[in-house]
Amino acid sequence: MSDIIFIGLSLSSILLLVALGLSITYGAMGVINMAHGELVMIGAYTAVLAGIHLGLNLFFALPLAFVTSGLLGLLIERVLIRRLYGRIIDTLLATWGVAIVLQQLVRLEFGLSFFGIHVEGLGSGLQNMAVPAFLTQPVDIAGFTLQPYRSFIIVVTLLLTGLTWWLMYRTPMGAQVRAIMRNPQIAAACGIDVRRVSALTFAYGSGLAGVAGVLLAGFKTVMPEMGASVVVDGFLVVVVGGVGSLLGTVLAAGILGQINGVVALLSNDIIARAVVFAVVIGLILWRPRGLFSFKSR
């Protein structure tokens, strides 16, 4: 029984990890960021490259990936998204384009492969990130097998969620972000620098994606297409949880992860996936604005 709960918890934490960044960029800023999965992918590649070329392990890769994906997110916001606020369908298309460009950049090794230069760790192939040995050795505690790596993901996810909550609800910056979420015009009228705050918020959400990428790299294959499947799950969680609601996102990730885990064990993963989608459809019909929502822009 504890095994089932643990697997569900682990699935939930992975969902939450991806959805956390998305709930900020989509929830707070109304941008359907299709490139979110690619920011996850960039985070994973940062970990792979840091391992190969700098000899840095997972723990150093985490902050590095946060900075890399965060800066990339800032760049995307500055160059593209800031011109598209309020045009939700346009952001979808534009960020999808960004996603394709990012995938190809990694696949073509930033164009270097045209000149016959090969950077180890890039390219269209499969990469892997080394996980420190003590994180792969399971520990038996009173008959329950504790998996250190999955536990590590759960802990990091909790810490990041806590940090995000603190930033959003306990800092002046967070108050400004929440004000913009409610109504950007009035927020601007009250003297909030909407552009600056939006850019920083977007960068923070992107940075979270990078961290998610590093943690996913520990048990998934790292490849240019890895972000595509991740982003769908992220959107599911955000939409079910309620746009812009941190609590809703956490709760939705918890529910969907547990359902997935339990059904997968009782029958199989394919049916589990179908059940999850059925639950999502049901929840959206029941509460079109998500589990928790408030009137926003």
């Binding site: 048990f219 997968a264 064990l265 394919i270 996936r273």
Partner: peptide, 16 residues
């Protein structure tokens, strides 16, 4: 047992 091609979440299957 079968999983989708490209499936990468093996927790439940390995537990099984």
């Amino acid at each position: 047992e079968y999983l989708e091609l490209g499936h990468s979440e093996w927790g439940a299957m390995v537990s099984k």
